[in-house]
Write a protein that binds this DNA or RNA. Structure first.
Lengths: 174, 174
DNA sequence: CTAACCATGTAAATAGTTACATGATTAA
DNA sequence: TTAATCATGTAACTATTTACATGGTTAG
């Protein structure tokens, strides 16, 4: 994961490890945390696999500038083209970089993802129907208030995602 | 994390590891994935620390029934009382178990969490103002469409959370 | 009788955090 | 001159996934 975020950040130009972390924080920092303890080893791995090159500045600041290679770009683009899968919010990182992706693939992947979301909504709604019937037969419903509220959260969450996806699929807003 | 989810599930009664996983899937499965590879070692650790006891059924099914001890309950409740912190959706797991928590602490923690959410919203809105000004000066705004959309996602997400929290703080809905 | 489900577990790999360690530069 | 920021890195730890391995029970 961190490798692709790093490659994605390097797509806009060469920079130091420190800068990669700073820009990551400023852009996708709300839902993706990057620590130096994972970033620097990742950069080393990326250099070893020739997806990235390292050049040392011999000026006073002893920093290293990383650039993405053509191989690295190809590797990144391959990852970007793959279908969005919902775990760990990786999809949001990918969508963040979707300006690099061609429109047909972008649309295709977003629609496929939206179908997953729609499926989740249908699933929760089905459970909700069963649960609300079961709750009716109980005297003390308040005993399950928080449990049921978390189920509602799921519904709110996926509905929000669905609305958002609908908009961006049609390139609305901005 | 898995220890507390496990303890939480055992709060409603004794059951097998298999059942713990099944119930976890059925309830918080949308945002928390539990695998046997983490569950069984966790159960072993919980038994070692006397938070849970294990009894073997000597019938045909060779299963083990786990029960939460008083010490385990105290340990779980201590965790539950702690402030909600937003990383990794742990807060949703906690809120799911909030029917076990006393109302004042529940309300206090939810309000504190809502303030974090409000802070995030303010932060994104501030960034949005700067970004939209910067975008105005560019000819090709569409180049940043997806990046900006992900920022909007953040706003939608936190607004959804804020609305949801507002409702459950006042014990509305159900 | 066989497929789906019940049931438990380990080993290796993956991924990442946290704490530590160091030192230069810049703005107040 | 001192606090903040720039800058890089390692080691130990924590947590979890994935794949493998095994075998019993139940419903159609």
């Amino acid at each position: 994961m961190i490798e692709f975020v790093t490659l994605g950040m390097l797509m806009q130009g060469k920079m130091s490890g420190y800068d990669i972390k700073k820009i990551t924080e400023q852009t996708v920092g709300i839902f993706y945390k990057m620590s130096y303890g994972s970033l620097y080893p990742a950069l080393k791995r990326l250099v070893n696999s020739t997806f990235v090159t390292e050049e040392e500045t011999n000026d006073s600041k002893n920093k290293k500038i990383y650039s993405i290679t053509e191989l690295g770009q190809a590797h990144f683009m391959q990852w970007l083209r793959e279908p969005l899968h919902s775990n760990k919010r990786e999809y949001l990182i990918k969508i963040f970089f979707y300006d690099y992706l061609d429109e047909p693939t972008r649309k295709q992947n977003l629609i496929a993802y939206q179908q997953h979301v729609a499926h989740h909504i249908a699933q929760i709604e089905a459970v909700q129907t069963i649960v609300s019937k079961e709750l009716e037969q109980l005297e003390d419903k308040s005993q399950y208030y928080n449990r049921v509220s978390v189920m509602h959260y799921g519904l709110h969450f996926y509905n929000m995602e669905n609305e958002w996806l609908k908009k961006i699929i049609d390139n609305e807003g901005l």
